[in-house]
Amino acid sequence: MNTSQASLESLFAGLHLADIHQTLIRNIISLRASQDLFDDLSDTPADWVVAQRCESGVKPHGYVSPATALYRPFEEADWFNAVEFPFKNWSASRFCDGTFGIWYGADTVGTSVHETVYHWRTRLLRDAGFEQLVLNGVRESITAERKIYGVRCDAALIDLRPQVTLFPSLVDMEHYHSTQPIG
């Protein structure tokens, strides 16, 4: 047995599955108001409908989901695995290296907002160099619109919080080498 396997076994020792049946909060990027993505190509609404139909006709089957609030992370992971993106694994997070979809939810809106802001500030914006964005001596702001969804969760989940004292790498702010294999 290798060291990482032994570590994972001791991490999960004593933990139990929690049978969760409650509404969880899903915080996803969105538009505040719906926009027609093709209105800049033509002034004619009938042309927009044609463009929408063309787009729908060529989308891979997996990307026509009935509930994007639930399925978006899995669809995006499939897409970015198929298309080499300039920022390799840009969607990496604590429990995902960016090569597969992972669904993040929270039990409160406050936790969801806190985690989202933290992830954007310490990962996405920093990695893209936006934390130094200053124009004419004024620090620029970046606005991202998001929507909060209540999603019914019926699942068996593991709460890793009791193990943080023994495994501080579970909450390491910079390095996810211990948590990504768990995901």
Rank of each mutant, 00 (worst) to 15 (best):
V49E: 11
V49G: 08
V50I: 14
V50K: 13
V50E: 11
A51W: 04
A51F: 05
A51R: 06
Q52W: 04
Q52N: 05
R53M: 08
R53S: 09
R53L: 12
R53Q: 14
R53W: 00
R53E: 15
R53H: 02
R53D: 05
C54E: 13
C54Q: 07
C54H: 12
C54N: 06
C54W: 00
E55V: 00
E55P: 07
E55N: 02
S56V: 08
S56H: 15
S56Y: 10
G57Q: 02
G57W: 02
G57V: 05
G57S: 11
V58D: 01
K59Q: 14
K59M: 15
K59H: 12
P60Q: 11
P60F: 13
P60N: 14
P60L: 12
P60R: 04
P60T: 07
H61I: 06
H61Q: 10
H61K: 08
H61T: 09
H61D: 09
H61G: 12
G62K: 08
G62V: 06
G62I: 11
G62R: 04
G62P: 06
Y63P: 01
Y63Q: 03
Y63I: 00
Y63D: 11
Y63F: 15
Y63L: 11
Y63G: 09
V64T: 10
V64E: 11
V64D: 12
V64M: 11
S65I: 05
S65R: 09
S65Q: 00
S65W: 01
P66H: 04
P66T: 06
P66K: 03
P66S: 05
P66V: 00
A67Y: 04
A67S: 15
T68C: 10
T68S: 13
T68E: 12
T68P: 14
T68V: 15
T68W: 15
A69I: 06
A69V: 11
A69F: 13
L70Y: 04
L70D: 10
L70P: 05
L70Q: 10
L70R: 09
L70M: 11
Y71L: 02
Y71C: 05
Y71T: 03
Y71E: 01
Y71Q: 05
R72T: 08
R72A: 15
R72D: 09
R72K: 12
P73T: 00
P73A: 06
P73I: 00
F74S: 04
F74V: 13
F74Q: 00
F74L: 02
F74D: 02
F74W: 07
F74K: 03
E75D: 01
E75V: 00
E75I: 01
E76M: 11
E76L: 08
A77E: 00
A77Y: 05
D78F: 13
D78V: 13
W79D: 10
W79S: 10
W79Q: 08
F80W: 02
N81K: 14
N81C: 02
A82W: 00
V83I: 15
V83D: 06
V83F: 07
E84V: 01
E84F: 03
E84N: 01
E84T: 06
E84W: 02
E84Q: 14
E84D: 09
F85W: 12
F85N: 13
F85M: 11
F85R: 10
P86Q: 03
P86A: 03
P86W: 06
P86F: 08
F87D: 07
F87S: 14
K88T: 10
K88V: 04
K88C: 07
N89S: 13
N89H: 12
N89Q: 10
